[in-house]
Design a protein around this nucleic acid. Structure first.
Lengths: 231, 231
DNA sequence: TCAAAAGTGTTCATTGTACACCCATGT
DNA sequence: ACATGGGTGTACAATGAACACTTTTGA
């Protein structure tokens, strides 16, 4: 007796990818959503997604969807989980694989927002999302927090040049708690993955804050898996 | 212009579940495999798996497969990842969702091994697995390590009553490194989730080692997410 | 000159890590 | 009596957390 059914007699399914695209601005983490264009739940806010096609891998499907909606080629992307409840989409049986992506909002092309009826919403407004999309966001956020406490992936949410204050604000937004400025700076600087530039950011103070960049060799250090910005 | 294709025009896929079943015995972590019963790769070692059916969720499919091969109703199970490369199964396009499960080998019904041509193999023999199953095992093992360092899930691999030496051996097998006996015991006992029984295990020494059990209220503490057995 | 954000060190508590000997008992 | 695995404590290092004031400068 075989564990596997034979291929030919087995059921086939629509497989979707849904992308949880996080951005960071104004001390707040935002989520890219769009107004769903088809029934059911037409017009309601939804994650961006699409169906996997026969001629592409699941990951390529996610890249296709992300590229279409952000115009960005190589954004940070990672698989989160797969959702397979029978009636999660009331219109049809759809199994959905989610990916999260991190984006620097300054790079984002505003024109795309109007073209796709898309919108950056704060995480607090996720309740309105259709189907199980809120659960998907929660799971992605949990993964993002875990990853960000162990790896330096948070930088994907910031511009290339950023201040330590910005970086701290990002981690405060990720963990929803205030961090001590001195401890935070001590810690990130001790990692020795940042280069201080001579240039200052004078947009937010008269004194100005030094810009920093990820150092050229931070990639090698990334593999050590030892970064932790968590309290 | 819509991001989503319409449901009806989209491609459909075979969706499989593959289960990475870990057991622990003799200071070694083992993996439950079986001899694949159908072509391609018939006779080669494979993870246990099966195709998702229309009338069940993906998770229920995994439970069905696990129950069939272990006879156990409620074993510890967790989704790992989804594998969606186009030619990962050379015979057909199959998207596979993996789950890992933890099992106490003492509970395992040997009869099932012969019935399904199944076999417990050490992790070192995973190279022989078909398709991308070795990658699946590697990913599951990474998740197991991460989880075990943060949560008390490792106990699912041990009998109800176990000695601290057994527990230490398990963690040494998980992390592939020797742990200091004094430090290990200090740490696990400080968690206050173990009850020492009056009974001793005399199978391995003349002196005998006390048996321990998870304390009744460990479940509540589990939620604190603060356990760490890692070095 | 003052408002507003940037920047900076020390102390203490907790946790992690290294390390070596005695105990109990069946044969 | 001895071999075998079980069991215990201490000292040092590293990390985490709490905490308040000075600097800069444009308006």
């Amino acid at each position: 007796m075989s564990i596997l059914n034979t291929y030919s007699h087995s059921d086939r399914f629509l497989v979707a990818v849904d992308c949880i695209v996080f951005g960071f601005t104004n001390k707040e983490i935002r989520l890219l959503t769009f107004k769903r264009a088809i029934e059911p739940e037409k017009g309601k806010p939804s994650l961006i997604g699409g169906f996997v096609q026969s001629d592409e891998s699941v990951e390529d499907a996610a890249k296709r969807v992300l590229n279409k909606l952000t115009g960005i080629e190589n954004l940070y992307m990672e698989q989160v989980a797969t959702y397979g409840a029978i009636h999660r989409d009331p219109a049809a049986r759809v199994i959905s694989v989610t990916y999260f992506a991190l984006i620097n909002l300054e790079d984002y092309d505003e024109e795309l927002l109007t073209r796709y009826d898309a919108k950056w919403i704060p995480l607090s407004e996720c309740q309105d999302l259709i189907f199980d999309h809120k659960q998907m966001v929660d799971d992605a956020m949990a993964l993002l927090r875990r990853k960000a406490s162990a790896f330096a992936i948070g930088f994907n949410l910031l511009p290339e040049k950023f201040t330590l204050t910005q970086l701290q604000s990002l981690y405060e937004a990720l963990y929803c708690e205030a961090l001590d400025k001195r401890n935070f700076r001590k810690k990130v600087l001790s990692l020795e993955i940042l280069n201080r530039l001579d240039e200052k950011d004078k947009r937010h103070s008269r004194k100005g804050a030094y810009f920093y960049m990820l150092s050229d060799d931070y990639q090698a250090k990334l593999k050590k898996e030892t970064y932790s910005f968590s309290k």
